[in-house]
Computed example of a mutant assay.
Amino acid sequence: MRDYRYLAELTDDPDGGVVVSFPDVPEAITSGADRHQALASAADALGLALRGYLAEDRDMPARAAEGTVMVSPHADDVLKLALIESLRRQSVTPDRFQDMSGLKDWEVAALFDPDAVNEVAALENALALLGQRIRIGVEAA
């Protein structure tokens, strides 16, 4: 099972507010007026940075650090990351995926595009075609 949680470091901004950074994903940095807002922004920043790795055809950063404040991207970002990683790992081309799925060209293109917005059900169905299933859990924040 792939886990997309990364350690978030929170520091007080001398100008006010809280800054969030990720030691394993240096491209992800954000802030908020307080801890709660900073952590809410952190999920967005992390998802954007990780989708950037895929857009640049880079491997996902390894999670080396763990601690008390672990942040995940939003669920739709996690599914998109998992889908694109599975497509690449299995060397599935857009043409092959279209044959497998029966989807239209534009639907396949959106699934392969790290920045395209897809419905959660579409991502879940695409993952299923690749032999993957999602598991959702909820834990204390």
Rank of each mutant, 00 (worst) to 15 (best):
T93C: 03
T68A: 12
D99K: 12
K80Q: 09
L87K: 00
F112D: 00
S101W: 00
A110Y: 04
V78R: 15
A116T: 04
S91H: 12
A49C: 06
G102R: 03
M70R: 06
V71D: 11
F97E: 01
R88W: 15
L46T: 03
I84F: 07
Y53N: 10
R63N: 11
N118A: 10
R88P: 09
E66W: 08
L103R: 15
A121N: 13
G52Q: 07
F97C: 01
Q90D: 15
R58A: 11
A121C: 07
A55H: 06
D44F: 13
E66D: 13
T93D: 03
A110M: 13
A49Q: 02
L39K: 07
W106C: 14
S72D: 12
D59I: 03
S41V: 02
D57A: 15
A122R: 14
P73L: 07
A122G: 14
A126F: 06
K80R: 07
A126T: 03
R51M: 09
R89W: 12
M100Y: 10
I84C: 07
S72N: 11
D77K: 06
E56R: 12
D95N: 06
M100H: 03
E119K: 15
M70E: 12
L123N: 05
L39V: 04
F97R: 00
E66Y: 15
L83M: 13
D105Y: 10
S72Y: 14
P73S: 09
L48Y: 13
A45T: 09
E119M: 12
I84W: 00
D57P: 04
D113L: 01
L111H: 14
M60K: 04
G67T: 04
F112C: 01
S86A: 15
L46F: 06
M70D: 08
A62M: 09
L87M: 11
M60R: 11
A109L: 12
D76I: 08
